[in-house]
Amino acid sequence: MTSIPIFITGTGTDVGKTLASAIITEALEADYWKPVQAGFDNGTDAFKVKSLISNSKSVIHGEAYELILPASPHIAAREEDTKINLDVITNKFKEFKSDNPFIVIEGAGGIMVPLNEKEFIIDLIQQLHAKVVLVSRNYLGSINHSLLTAALCKQRQLPVVGWLFNDHYMNYEKEIVDWSGYPEIGCIPFMEEITRAFVREEALKLKPRLLELL
């Protein structure tokens, strides 16, 4: 059985993709995979997700590429005299043995982050035939970044599930939803400390909406 891939991408770096991935993984009791990890001085994103989920069904799969330099993946790969190959990633995904109906796949940075000299995160999404969750953090400029991301998704005809917002600010969410035409999955409130209990609570809130949109 091949799990349905749900690709978590964002409007940029540090918008909360890992937290969103943990919450969605917990909500669906899905498997989790970060195919390309660039930089892990503070631990990998897979390790963070594992530390934040509570259910016993999710399987955390190993990375296809684990790169030392915390930089754009194509640069980090270049520093290690290697090149990220989308076919390697896709073949690894096909080799996963799991009865789980869903696998959450976390991207790196935004949708146009380069993976090599010719291909980007968006190309990987298409190659994996993944559904897409867009993560947007509320900051000055996020409307522009969010709508640019949405426009590219529409141009490539990606199957977007909807928006997951971080850090409520003014009325950005409604405007981004209305202008993009993509629905809102939910909004993750700001917390100084992210705990398993918080992730579990947010997962319970989001689960009905996620299942509705999926």
Rank of each mutant, 00 (worst) to 15 (best):
A30N: 14
E63Q: 03
N166Y: 01
G16P: 03
F190A: 01
G110M: 12
H61Q: 01
L210G: 02
E66N: 04
A38L: 06
I188M: 10
G10E: 03
H129N: 15
Y32P: 07
Q37K: 10
I23R: 11
V177L: 10
I188N: 03
S51E: 15
G39Q: 12
N91Q: 08
L140D: 07
L140A: 11
K207T: 07
I125D: 07
T90M: 06
P35K: 14
T2E: 04
L211D: 08
K207F: 02
K131Q: 06
L140R: 11
P70H: 14
T25R: 09
T13C: 05
A20I: 06
L134D: 01
F7Y: 05
V15E: 09
K48G: 00
E29H: 07
C153Y: 12
I24C: 11
S51K: 11
R209T: 12
Q155D: 02
N85R: 11
D81C: 04
T44I: 09
S142G: 07
A197V: 12
E184Y: 01
E95F: 07
D178P: 01
V49A: 13
L211W: 04
K154D: 04
S142H: 11
I176D: 12
A22L: 04
Q37N: 06
M170S: 13
P183S: 13
G39L: 10
N171S: 15
L28F: 04
F40T: 00
G110A: 14
R156V: 00
K154C: 02
I105T: 04
I8A: 08
T82A: 01
S72V: 01
A64Y: 02
P101H: 13
V36F: 04
A22N: 09
E119W: 09
W179T: 00
G43E: 09
P5R: 08
F190I: 00
F40H: 13
D123Q: 08
I8F: 03
A30W: 08
A76D: 12
M170G: 00
A30S: 15
M191L: 12
H74C: 02
D123P: 04
C153R: 12
L158M: 14
S180C: 13
C187Y: 03
D167W: 03
P73M: 15
S72K: 13
E184F: 02
R137M: 06
V104D: 02
